[in-house]
Design a protein around this nucleic acid. Structure first.
Lengths: 190, 190
DNA sequence: GTCTATATGTAGATAGAC
DNA sequence: GTCTATCTACATATAGAC
């Protein structure tokens, strides 16, 4: 812990995280990561046996980061409805990135769905974390079909992302987020 | 027209179309297309100067195929609401493919959004065709915000696709399609 | 732990015989 | 129009000196 090696390992993960998002997993080479970090290509194999293991570490890092974000969200309010509304803010918060590169989780999952089933299963961990958290918020509000609602919310955000990215349309992000908030309210207010 | 050459050209396009969908554009090599068609790699350059040109031909082919599908849809009913409901059937009709590989149009667009802006613009043609057609159906029904509704419909279908593909969930496709039809009815019936 | 050199495979693209 | 041989670049991965 705290050694030089662990620092390098984390730098590789952080650079790969960003590159996998901006260029895609398959389009990111070790050379790209080397250029971004200054760490020579051959050195990577001291920390990771294969590129797959870098993906695994990147997904774990994203899961941890998302966990922290969700914990912060929980710390800010005890009202599950407010938490869901805050969660949906992610769309506009990340608007520019979303328009340029899509959703980091959704685009990775779809990329790896194509003839790389084992890798897609790794990427699914991030989706599962969000799905379970959203489900729990709906459950707290006493809704029976909480998992269905969680899938619906994530699907709406993914759909808005894919279309906004395809047409480079920031306004559509804004409008979709308003609609999603209305939908959350319609499901959680009585 | 009708020469051996044109036949080969079309066979290359058809094989590339399928491979771009199943494996992704960047993950499809000339060797893959050669294996699928039996046409030698080097021969491709007689028909296409670059891989980009194959993509362009594939997208044109998809646009034409979709145009035919929409024309058939128009031929079957004059009721724009029925047309939209038929259009939404695509999700379940292509259920197995969608779960395995996502949406051919959406996944291609998102893949090419990543550092390949010119290629993404090519892929956008297919989205634009669908968007305009759906918009026209809503307009026929006298709805003022027809383009917004078109984007919303496509976004819902894309969102259902991304999530169903991520979780390999056929039931979610079915449920989403029901919800989408309810939404279409709610917007178009008075 | 760090880095260079290199092995091995395959990518897109080209040249030129037939 | 068709096909083989080949070019150049770059991919992941390894070996081994320091």
């Amino acid at each position: 812990m705290g050694t030089k090696g662990e620092g390098n390992r984390q730098r590789i993960i952080d650079a790969a995280d960003n590159l996998f998002y901006r260029r895609g997993y398959n389009q990111t080479s070790f050379q790209d990561i080397s250029d971004a970090t200054g760490i020579p290509r051959g050195n990577f194999y001291y920390y990771f046996k294969t590129k797959d293991e870098i993906l695994d570490a990147v997904v774990s890092s994203r899961v941890e980061e998302l966990s922290n974000m969700l914990s912060q969200c929980e710390a800010e309010t005890n009202d599950a409805r407010q938490r869901l509304l805050m969660f949906s803010n992610m769309l506009e918060d990340k608007r520019d990135d979303v328009i340029q590169s899509g959703c980091p989780i959704g685009s990775l999952s779809t990329e790896l769905a194509k003839d790389e089933a084992e890798l897609q299963a790794i990427s699914r961990q991030a989706f599962t974390l969000l799905r379970d958290w959203v489900k729990q918020q709906f459950e707290t509000l006493g809704l029976a079909n909480a998992d269905d609602l969680a899938m619906d919310l994530l699907a709406r955000m993914q759909g808005a992302t894919v279309m906004a990215c395809a047409f480079k349309d920031a306004d559509f992000i804004a409008r979709s987020q308003r609609d999603i908030k209305e939908w959350i309210n319609s499901k959680t207010m009585n």
